[in-house]
Amino acid sequence: MHWYWIDRITVFESQNRAESIKVVSLGEDHLHDHFPYFPVMPASLIIEGIAQTAGLLLYEAKGYKEKVVLAKIPRFTLFNVEVKPGEVLTYKVKLESVREDGGVASVWAYRENELLAEGELMFAHLGGNFADQSLFADGDMIDMMRLFRVFEVGVDATGKKLIPPDIKNK
């Protein structure tokens, strides 16, 4: 099973902000499992999609070196959670703090111009007992960024085109 909760990243400004889109399709199994015969996108998966967007922005901001995990959702408000098949969501994230031990992003979810959710996500860089453990194969995260087409739209902190790092998949 794939764990992709966005379809494409449309804006990626290194160390600053990103935007992504999620196209909700009736063909997705999770829509049928949540409430039978009432297909709506589970709010938790909206948060997951936003976290994937912000997590990759933080991963790039720290030079593709840290194991970034969503660690806390300190503030999050959902205004309207009935997202239905055929709708397109836009997630916007802004990095508020990038630290050695993690980072914080302000986040928003929109359906066209309608604000559906806003909040803050906190990410940790896994250290301690996890520092030497591999969560993914080297290159998996870069492959994910390629799938989301980050390198087609991404710019670095100086506004130049973002170049994929030379990390080979093992």
Binding site: K72, P74, S97, G102, V104, M122
Partner: peptide, 13 residues
């Protein structure tokens, strides 16, 4: 542990 990071972020802000 993660709350410590949250507290630090709140104070910085």
């Amino acid at each position: 542990s993660i709350d410590i990071l949250d507290i630090v972020f709140q104070l910085e802000k």
